[in-house]
C-alpha cells in the first residue's frame, strides 16, 4: 500500500524522499514550475510551484511529500500570484518573443500562456545585457535569463565543468561563464554538454539553426505546457 497525499482533492501516491512536485508530475498532475527539473537537485528559486500544504504556502519542489498532506495548487489565488511572478520575470529581462528562436518551445512563454498572462503588467526594466556570440557553435542571449540555474546545475552536476554560475546580488544577479574574459568561447563548453540543451528559455542557443520548426508545429503550439507534465523534455528531444 503506497503512501498518498491529496492534490486538489485527488490522491497522489509518493515514495519516501520525493518532493510534492516530483510525485505530482510523476502521477501526471501539472504544477507550474520553471527552475524545477526532474533530473536535477531542487533549487527552489522561481517560486512558481508554490502550493498550499495544509493551508500553508510553500514551494512544492523543496517540500517533501508526506502521508495525508492536503495540497492545493489549481486555485485562482495561487494562479494569480504565479501570474504575477511570471510577469515579474518578463519585465526583469528583455523578452521579445517574436524575435526569439525559442518562441514556441520556451517554458517561460508556455507557462505564461497557461497562466493566461495577457500583459507583463509592471513597468519594464529594459536592462542592458549584451549578447555573447564568441563561441563558434553557441550564442548566449542574457536578455532572456530567468536565473533558474538549470545550466549551472547541469554543467556542474552532469558535465562536471562549472561553465556557468550566478553572480551579483539582488536585481543585479546575472549569469556568468567560467572564463577570465567572461566569454563562452574561452570556456570548455561544448555542444554535447547537458548544459547546452537544458535552458528553459532562449539564453543558450545553437548557432546556424534559425526558426527551424514552423509555427504551429513547435512544442507548445501542439499542446499546452500542462499536457506535457514532466515528460515534456524527453518528448521534445524525440
Amino acid at each position: 500500500m503506497s503512501k498518498t497525499f491529496t492534490l486538489d482533492g485527488k490522491d497522489v501516491p509518493f515514495r519516501d524522499g520525493q518532493t510534492i512536485i516530483e510525485a505530482a508530475l510523476e502521477a501526471g498532475h501539472y504544477i507550474p514550475h520553471l527552475c524545477h527539473h526532474p533530473d536535477f537537485k531542487a533549487h527552489g528559486s522561481c517560486k512558481l510551484c508554490t502550493v498550499k500544504v495544509n493551508g500553508r504556502q510553500t514551494a512544492s519542489c523543496t517540500m517533501q511529500a508526506a502521508e495525508g498532506q492536503v495540497v492545493e495548487s489549481e486555485t485562482e489565488e495561487l494562479n494569480s500570484e504565479r501570474r504575477a511572478l511570471t510577469q515579474m520575470l518578463f519585465v526583469e529581462g528583455n523578452h521579445f518573443c517574436p524575435s526569439c528562436e525559442k518562441s514556441g518551445d520556451c517554458q517561460l512563454q508556455a507557462t505564461a500562456y497557461h497562466l493566461n498572462m495577457m500583459t507583463a503588467h509592471y513597468d519594464h526594466f529594459f536592462p542592458n545585457r549584451p549578447l555573447d556570440a564568441s563561441h563558434p557553435d553557441f550564442l548566449l542571449d542574457f536578455n532572456r535569463c530567468i536565473l533558474c540555474s538549470l545550466c549551472v546545475r547541469a554543467s556542474r552536476d552532469v558535465d562536471g565543468k562549472n561553465v556557468f554560475a550566478l553572480a551579483g546580488r539582488g536585481i543585479k544577479s546575472h549569469l556568468i561563464v567560467n572564463a577570465r574574459s567572461g566569454k563562452l568561447a574561452d570556456t570548455d563548453f561544448s555542444a554535447a554538454d547537458k548544459a547546452a540543451s537544458v535552458c528553459p528559455v532562449g539564453v543558450i542557443l545553437p548557432k546556424r539553426r534559425g526558426f527551424a520548426v514552423p509555427i504551429g508545429e513547435r512544442t507548445f503550439d501542439k499542446q499546452p505546457i500542462d499536457a506535457y507534465v514532466d515528460t515534456r523534455i524527453a518528448r521534445k528531444e524525440e
Binding site: S45, K47, M88, E92, Y122, F125, R169, G170, I171, S173
Partner: peptide, 21 residues
Amino acid sequence: FAHESCGFCTPCRVGTSLLKN
C-alpha cells in the same frame, strides 16, 4: 531591502525593486 535582497527568489528579487520604484 531592494539593495539587500539576495536575488535568489523571484518575488523578492524583482518585487523589492518594483516596490522601490
